[in-house]
Write a protein that binds this DNA or RNA. Sequence first.
DNA 1: TTAGTAAATAGGAATTATTCGCATTTAGAA
DNA 2: TTCTAAATGCGAATAATTCCTATTTACTAA
Lengths: 148, 148
Amino acid sequence: MAVSPQDPGGGVARAEKLRAAGLKATAPRLTILEALETDRRHPSAEMIFESLIDKSPSLSLSTVYQTLETFLQRGLLRRIAGAGGKLRVDGTLQDHDHAVCRTCGAVFDVDPDLIKRPRPPASLPHGLQVKNLFVEYEVLCSDCASDE
Amino acid sequence: MAVSPQDPGGGVARAEKLRAAGLKATAPRLTILEALETDRRHPSAEMIFESLIDKSPSLSLSTVYQTLETFLQRGLLRRIAGAGGKLRVDGTLQDHDHAVCRTCGAVFDVDPDLIKRPRPPASLPHGLQVKNLFVEYEVLCSDCASDE
DNA sequence: TTAGTAAATAGGAATTATTCGCATTTAGAA
DNA sequence: TTCTAAATGCGAATAATTCCTATTTACTAA
């Protein structure tokens, strides 16, 4: 989210982004959206909640879950399969790919220009509308490689 | 898994596959592996357990969880982020890609030849060893598209 | 402005998914 | 065969996610 002198912190732009997605620009959503834009940890719902609870003491964990689900449905967020299959999200805006460690499930961001990117077809069989295309690398991270 | 006249059902080949991966060829593993090879539902641990409990009444759910984790680590299985981030797996052998519905989380198999497949680099920054590369489509399935 | 209204939130309880601990069993090596 | 590390089954424990509902809030239109 660009931050201009007229919009320190980017709050106005974020509110517009929410409204453009057909959502009310509520305080919890603005806070969560901001957190997501800057959090590079591929956080879980709990991690987001923890990172915000001091600034927003009335925020509830179930609101975080609900909000993530809403954002996912509007394409404001990517879902990642973390270790044990638990929910992790990625709310950073720029296109990038993910590498997931086969053994420990750790997720790493990968520069999308490392490979020649396929052009996505507009639609797929079964009437699937393509919204985005990402590359996922199945990897062995250095920690896990040394255990083998 | 190929089935030859000498190995009806493919059990011997499966046992070899397990041993090749450094694992003991136990009865639960053979059963689970067979189920995974044929189950196209992108099943959860529970779904696999349910599909086997009649034939293998002594099988336990925690063994299914453990076995899936083991198979994942040996690359016998792919992990998928299902709806709500719950664990789903794909144990079908052939290369293929996945389309995941943004809204409901449904997973569809996609023919890998639909696009020009990028050649994976052998390694990535941070000492990541690349084992595999898949394409993931973020889509809207026809059910969810009609709700919008 | 200021109601009116549908949508969103908080909080806790309920449910579901996953992991753990440990006694028993088993595959494969010697 | 016998031995041993690894794997299993079971139930209990924990953790993650969803559900319920009274209250609050953003936006709409008068």
